[in-house]
Design a protein around this nucleic acid. Structure first.
Lengths: 112, 112
DNA sequence: CAGAATCCTGTATGATACTG
DNA sequence: CAGTATCATACAGGATTCTG
């Protein structure tokens, strides 16, 4: 994978959503469940992904130690920057979607 | 992952190497083994990756049906285009390598 | 040489239950 | 609410063997 960061099922999507603002864990989880045509992300995996992103300096974690605790997540400047790159790549794919689909169908037709 | 193509261990590297020219299966396999600081790619996985790339219209496969057979691989124009995008992303990471490493070390220090 | 078939293993992801 | 712990599973990747 390019650099072991965007190469998993959820990270890119998380980056995109966090690009829209600041979210608490549960909110973020709900939104991810809708935006992605995929299934819902498990609580455990969301925590893992956020930890990794925080570790890489892409996400900021803010804790308000009340009861119950409030934890919010947002992109760091570095994270916002990477999000732009991700969007660029998504744009690339979208603009080539037709060609790619055509290639796929041609391939599938010819192999039988 | 961004779009399920660059999100694996070998595809990006294959794209980069194929950007350097046309290769036969065994050659390509040898070069991948050196360029990547990683281990050697297995014959099976290389075949799988090349098939996928061919299906997406990114790689062209040319067979000369002699004995033994000669099969060569090269990028299509679409593949060459994607390779550029991949290089851009790699450039992004390289130019931020220091910041990322610093963030990682700060995180590891603070968690104990 | 290129690749198909088999078998095996590690890692990512997921479901569930529990806690500060 | 956010997170941890545990257990279970799916899939990518790898080793080996065989063949046109």
């Amino acid at each position: 994978m390019i650099f072991g960061l965007l190469g998993d099922r959820w990270t890119t999507l998380i980056l995109l959503v966090l690009g829209m603002g600041t979210w608490r864990h549960a909110e973020l989880r709900r939104v991810l469940g809708r935006l992605g045509a995929e299934e819902k992300i498990s609580q455990r995996v969301l925590t893992l992904k956020l930890r990794t992103l925080e570790r890489e300096g892409l996400v900021m974690r803010r804790v308000v130690d009340s009861v119950p605790p409030k934890v919010s997540y947002a992109l760091t400047p570095l994270g916002a920057d990477l999000r732009q790159e991700a969007e660029r790549l998504i744009g690339w794919v979208n603009s080539r979607a037709v060609a790619i689909r055509a290639a796929r169908e041609a391939f599938d037709r010819s192999e039988d």
